[in-house]
Design a protein around this nucleic acid. Structure first.
Length: 851
RNA sequence: GCGAAAGUGGCGGAAUUGGCAGACGCACCAGACUUAGGAUCUGGCGGGGAAACCCGUGGGGGUUCAAGUCCCCCCUUUCGCACCA
């Protein structure tokens, strides 16, 4: 098979480069020339970066970087992301793995429509142009993607499977339709995703407040998997703790009980959710969300109340728009109605309150001012009763001021439950409520179902029909894909243009053959990115979303790399999608990615690079000035990959200088290395160089396997090169055997390969290596060669450095102490003092404790 | 308010287990060289001091022969979440 060959075919290196004799002036490192030449060679041999099929016996390694939105321009965040992934992929190839390293395009989304409006270009044309431009940029970076598996989410080949999955979910009740509130930008005339609402304002119109609108929407039942999504986090130990915590908070599991309060004089029962049923004897009012159905019923009969409640709703909306729901000033309105506490039979007033959320729990709470800070604030403000029902076991410790929120107490004034601990009371009172039929144990999640309808054009059509006879009817599988019509006029009026296309909207019902209308909403683009990485394993499959055998081989993803900004949305949706597909019987893995790495942001002048701040650095410009190798290597060198990176152009220049030094050094000695024969005996200078070499190999190998601190890996290579160039004259004079030089050059170039692939490929040939470097084995380090025989050991007196002694690495405690005492400086410092204690740590230090 | 991460020279950052603080790079300074190049090479570069030495990892305490690293308290920054009942 083509991709298994070791030779790099099509070698056509221009001859003028390495035929220059040593008398000619020193060659200059010309990254533009080298990189263009190698990129052309790689482009001619795409099989170099192709994975072997899933039948391969080799251990597999799936390295994945998050796919970009084709905006038309790579930014430095991309460069950093891809530099990390590319280094890893190349390293794993060199370690002998079968590597899958794919790339694709998250190609649906609003920017294409905006661009269409602005430039009068069809979204597809704009998107395709951008993909082409970014592809060129990626190639100029020398990234090792297997383009045969490219996935573009806006192609019918791909999005038809979005529709297919949607139908499968519909069949299982995982996709459903309901009325719901959505973000609406009056300027765009469209629904916005939550992430497109920035501090209450539209992301496109910075001074347009987003409104809430009620619309019929399609939802995916992510809550079905809430518990599993939560439990799964415990097993994802290859994910950053930070991301796991964020997801746990987002899922927001809360254990408690629902309790029904009957409304006096009516047949209604208000259900409240509480985590503290043990405090129910202290409940002195009910607080309902202003949009609670019961409040709506009350306001219909009470215009004065309606006015007050509508003010509460306004306050909530304002707070939501200002993105400060937490900071809202508490207000409420007494409804004039009372409810009966099912435990005490007491009458409690029913209020509407602006701090109660309709969409969490039951949208209603029992207010226990003595034991909840919020309820306390509210009760004091409106003069509601405060009744304490829990006492701490050590009453002396009890704070004088309410609220007293502890859960470490005993119930008081709570009827038959008095004297129980809070924990015991919670259990027993819940059981009691259940036995009496007015309550039950409830687990509430903050996670909500995923609203996937978008009133936009550039997305996957939702494959549903509305028939006057049959109601909601799914599009049959054999009619997929429901193609997104093209040549559509996109206007400022907003809403989906699909609704204005009779030829799209009007169709026939597959059930009754009568007239039916198509759903004109499209799917959220997060649907596209929820499973794209499965498609990479069999991107051209026309009969299924992916080949299950290929997925079984490649999954889970061994290493997923991307920005932490996707910690919640994309990474929860993907996990949900994986579990859903598993339950369809398509895959066996429970989680998409075994390991996740979240890289830091790219910063310039103290702020995240962004157009609005005007501190964007263009990758093209960096490549033009310093070369792709320098730009990539700088992205890895300037900071550990998980931390924010401060982009400093002088730093790129520094890396470029380093690569230039490597180039010139290797070129100076390439000729002699080419004809080298093994050396009989090594000089001390040669041994020292070999030692440094093996220490460097060890360090970088460990960095790849461990902390991924490529900044120190690259620093180690720089140290090695510093030692090598210092030995330049010795090498030229033949004091270092050519065979040693050859093996040092070889390892040096191999170590550079993951970070500076163009230069490494070039130098690899320059030292006479014929086979491609990409699949050449990573150098092995020899512990014996890496070991120092003489080491410098610090000598301290009372913990302060007073001298350095050079001793054999294996020196015993006695030898160390003797050597230390023999040292002039130490002797001087010890003179006239009494040594109370000597601490000797072999290989580390000696410390004399003196008086 | 809650949670997480971080705070080290002029700057980016080193210092897996407590053991020479400042690797590597940038900037800067001095010198060499000249095929004046976005050069290159050599040396210097935490602060104070002539030196011996002293002081230095956000601040204050502590443990230890020894603390950037461990413990306690506090400050600052960044990022999440935020009336979640």
């Amino acid at each position: 098979m083509a991709f298994q060959q070791q030779e790099t075919p099509g070698a056509d290196v221009s001859a003028d480069i390495h035929t220059s004799s040593s008398s000619t002036p020193e060659l200059r490192y010309d990254p533009a020339e080298i990189e263009a030449r190698w990129q052309a060679r790689w482009a001619a041999h795409p099989e170099l970066y192709a994975a072997e099929p899933a039948t391969s016996r080799k251990p597999k390694y799936y390295v994945l970087e998050m796919l970009p939105y084709p905006s038309g321009q790579l930014h430095m965040g991309h460069v950093r992301n891809y530099a990390i992934g590319d280094a890893l992929a190349r390293y794993m190839w060199m370690q002998g793995y079968n590597v899958l390293h794919p790339m694709g395009w998250d190609a649906f989304g609003l920017p294409a429509e905006n661009a269409a409006l602005k430039n009068n270009t069809p979204p597809r044309e704009w998107t395709e142009k951008n993909i082409a431009a970014m592809r060129v940029q990626m190639d100029r970076l020398g990234l090792s993607y297997d383009w045969a598996t490219e996935v573009t989410t806006c192609l019918p080949d791909y999005y038809r499977w979005n529709q297919w999955f949607f139908l499968r979910m519909y069949e299982r009740g995982l996709a459903y339709r309901k009325n719901s509130k959505v973000n609406w930008c009056p300027e765009c005339q469209t629904v916005l995703a939550n992430e497109q609402v920035i501090d209450g304002y539209c992301w496109r119109h910075e001074d347009t407040l987003v409104e809430q609108r009620e619309l019929e929407q399609w939802f995916l039942r992510t809550t079905e998997y809430a518990q599993e999504l939560l439990d799964g986090l415990d097993k994802l130990d290859g994910w950053p703790e930070r991301v796991r915590t964020m997801q746990r908070n987002w899922i927001g599991r809360s254990e408690g009980a629902t309790v029904g309060f009957a409304i006096e004089g009516r047949s209604d029962v208000v259900k409240v959710f509480t985590t503290r049923i043990d405090t129910i004897y202290g409940a002195t009012s009910l607080q309902l969300a202003p949009e609670h159905p019961l409040i709506c019923a009350f306001t219909e009969q009470d215009p004065e109340l309606a006015k007050q409640v509508s003010a509460l709703i306004d306050q909530q909306n304002l707070a939501r728009e200002a993105n400060d729901v937490g900071g809202i000033e508490k207000h409420g309105a007494f409804t004039g109605h009372y409810a009966i506490n099912p435990f005490t039979q007491e009458r409690v007033p029913v209020w509407a309150a602006n701090y109660v959320l309709l969409d969490y729990g039951t949208g209603a709470i029992m207010s226990v001012p003595a034991h909840d800070e919020r309820d306390y604030d509210f009760a004091t403000k409106y003069g509601l009763a405060i009744k304490q029902v829990i006492r701490e076991e050590a009453p002396a410790e009890m704070p004088a001021a309410l609220p007293f929120v502890s859960e470490e107490g005993v119930l008081i004034d709570s009827g038959e439950w008095t004297g129980l601990s809070c924990a015991a009371a919670q259990q027993k009172m819940t059981a009691f409520a259940k036995s009496k039929g007015f309550g039950e144990a409830t687990i509430t999640f903050r996670l909500k179902d995923w609203g996937v309808s978008r009133q936009r054009y550039w997305g996957t059509p939702i494959p549903m029909l509305y028939c006057t006879n049959d109601g909601i009817v799914p599009v049959p599988d054999d009619q997929l894909p429901v193609l997104l019509p093209e040549n559509v006029e996109i206007t400022q009026e907003g809403g989906s243009p699909l609704a204005k296309l009779p030829e799209f909207v009007n169709t026939t019902c597959p059930k009754c053959g009568g007239p039916a209308r198509r759903e004109t909403d499209t799917m959220d683009t997060f649907v596209d990115s929820s499973w794209y990485f499965y498609r990479y394993t069999s991107a051209k499959d026309a009969t299924a979303p992916f080949d299950t055998a290929a997925v079984a081989y490649w999954f889970p993803i061994d290493q997923y790399i991307g920005g932490v900004e996707h910690a919640i949305l994309h990474l929860i949706y993907s996990r949900f999608w994986t579990k859903m597909m598993r339950d369809l019987g398509l895959i066996r893995n429970d989680e998409p990615a075994a390991r996740l790495f979240t890289q830091g942001m790219v910063i310039k002048n103290g702020a995240k690079m962004s157009k609005s701040k005007g501190n964007v650095v263009s990758p093209d410009e960096m490549i033009a000035r310093y070369g792709a190798d320098a730009a990539r290597m700088y992205a890895l060198f300037a900071a550990p990959p998980d931390r924010d990176l401060d982009w400093q152009e002088d730093g790129v220049a520094g890396v470029s200088r380093f690569l230039s030094r490597v180039y010139r050094f290797v070129m100076r000695h390439a000729a002699s290395a080419r004809g080298a024969s093994p050396a009989a005996e090594l000089s001390p200078a040669a041994t020292a160089l070999l030692r440094k070499l093996h220490q460097t190999i060890r360090k970088i190998t460990q960095d790849f396997g461990g902390r991924w601190h490529f900044n120190t890996s690259i620093a180690a290579i720089m140290e090695l090169v510093n030692e090598l160039t210092a030995a330049d004259a010795a090498i030229a004079e033949g004091k270092i055997p050519p065979a040693t030089v050859a093996s040092i050059l070889e390892s040096l170039i191999l170590m550079l390969a993951p970070f500076a692939p163009h230069l490494a490929a070039e130098l690899w040939e320059q030292i006479g290596r014929k086979g491609g470097i990409l699949r050449h084995a990573w150098p092995k380090f020899d512990e014996a060669l890496a070991r120092e025989d003489q080491i410098e050991v610090p000598v301290q007196i009372n913990g302060k450095l007073r001298g350095l002694i050079t001793v054999p690495a294996e020196a015993s405690r006695e030898m160390l102490e003797a050597a230390a005492r023999a040292d002039e400086k130490v002797q001087a410092a010890l003179a006239g003092k009494t040594v109370v204690k000597v601490v000797v740590v072999p290989g580390k230090l000696i410390n004399f404790v003196v008086r």
